[in-house]
């Protein structure tokens, strides 16, 4: 009898707690989703409505004109292609190099193993804006050395390399954490069977790395897709810049039509959102990857 009463009391208490948490989470969900909803709302209203009646006025017109105009003005095909030229090689190269370093760091013991890993992680912590001027001059000087200024500067190669350089640290960190969870015995039997170092990496370890590679690939694609900074400063030609800079095409010297810009932002953000929903599983596993052992 007493146990039942206590259970009921306990259940009620849990219920109250759950309700409280739901309200709490709900509140923050609204706070987070508000800017997105507001962007979509803004994108549906014509510019003239806003300047005539104010941002918070009751809408006189709602339509998709901003989307059509944004599509027309941004030249999206070209910019999406540019993004592809940068993102695909950068992600593949990052994953390849990252897995190579992770493999060495986690499977072989060198004196500098830990410091090497630290170096890569520390590089990740460096705010990229600090490296802007040095990277710029590095690219110019290397270009001059080979008699072609556009070797790295104002060239896809340069953008790809700078992304690889900045992402490889994180990839190494995550992949080496994951590799440490793979039983040593697998490696040992591979070595006993006479596998060379590269075969050990390519035929034994790499297939096992498929889940973290998929998760990392998705994360990095999003990050590189969203990059605006490097493309802006290392590409002097606008026609070579990625899709994020297409948005800048919607802003004038003085007048910016924020309704049009909102529509453009929704268009540009759409691929990453779709990517997220299609590959949700990889995303979530990516967030917790390697967190159990490190």
């Amino acid at each position: 009898m007493t146990t039942i009463v206590r259970d009921k009391k306990y259940r009620d208490k849990q219920k109250r707690k759950d309700n409280f948490i739901s309200v709490f989470i709900g509140f923050f969900a609204i706070v987070w989703i508000f800017p997105i909803l507001w962007t979509i709302w803004t994108s549906l209203r014509p510019y003239n409505d806003i300047i005539s009646y104010g941002v918070f006025s009751w809408p006189r017109h709602l339509n998709l004109d901003n989307y059509f105009n944004a599509f027309r003005q941004m030249g999206l095909t070209r910019y999406f292609l540019n993004t592809l030229y940068v993102t695909v090689p950068a992600v593949l190269l990052t994953l390849f190099l990252g897995s190579l370093i992770a493999f060495v760091v986690s499977r072989y013991s060198f004196k500098f193993n830990l410091s090497l890993l630290l170096l890569f992680t520390a590089g990740n912590m460096l705010p990229i804006v600090l490296t802007y001027i040095p990277v710029f001059w590095l690219y110019i000087k290397i270009g001059d050395l080979f008699g072609n200024r556009s070797l790295l500067y104002n060239n896809y190669l340069g953008i790809v390399l700078v992304h690889v350089a900045f992402q490889v640290g994180f990839a190494t960190f995550v992949l080496s954490s994951y590799m440490k969870t793979v039983p040593k015995e697998i490696s040992e039997s591979a070595i006993v069977d006479g596998a060379s170092v590269f075969r050990h990496y390519w035929n034994v370890m790499l297939p096992l790395l498929r889940p973290p590679l998929a998760a990392l690939g998705v994360l990095m694609s999003c990050w590189i897709y969203n990059d605006f900074f490097w493309a802006l400063i290392l590409m002097s030609q606008d026609s070579k810049r990625p899709v994020t800079s297409a948005l800048r095409q919607l802003q004038g010297e003085y007048v910016t039509d924020f309704n049009l810009l909102a529509a453009g932002a929704v268009i540009v953000a759409a691929p990453t959102v779709i990517l997220f929903f299609v590959l949700r599983k990889q995303f979530v596993s990516g967030l917790t990857l390697g967190s159990t052992k490190g």
């Binding site: 710029f136 110019i140 200024r149 002097s236 800048r248 095409q249």
Partner: peptide
């Protein structure tokens, strides 16, 4: 001719001029 965002061009002017400017 190429069109670039006015603010971006102003803010990066010194770098652009030292790189491969139009």
């Amino acid at each position: 001719s190429q069109a670039v965002n006015s603010d971006d061009f102003q803010n990066n002017f010194v770098q652009i001029m030292q790189g491969t400017p139009d």
